[in-house]
Design a protein around this nucleic acid. Sequence first.
DNA 1: ACCATGACGCACA
DNA 2: ATGTGCGCCATGG
Length: 101
Amino acid sequence: MVTIFEQKVYDLCRLVPKGKVTTYREISNALRGRGQIYRAVGNALNKNPFAPQVPCHRVINSNGFVGGFVYGTKSKIALLKKEGIEIKNKKIDLKKFLFRF
DNA sequence: ACCATGACGCACA
DNA sequence: ATGTGCGCCATGG
């Protein structure tokens, strides 16, 4: 089941350009303008009915850690690296690759 | 309608 | 700076 909320989340994920990443915090912030729904955001992505279709791998934690991934954190990191994102010790430089809406 | 869970974030010690 | 605990929203059973 795809709720409006999830749809919004997926849409935002799609907006993230290649080579950039976003955080749950940013998404939640861009979504409602507040920031307290990152839990729900993570949930929506976790369900991810569009798996590889939606570039949900570009969504990371606000602290810069990749976080989790259905196909495994490794795959997520690999994908991000493919996009030209530098990853250090499972972490990403938000300062450089963080995309803001 | 209620309880429990989750790919998180932040405050506090 | 590091570690622990609590809280938030939405969804599923």
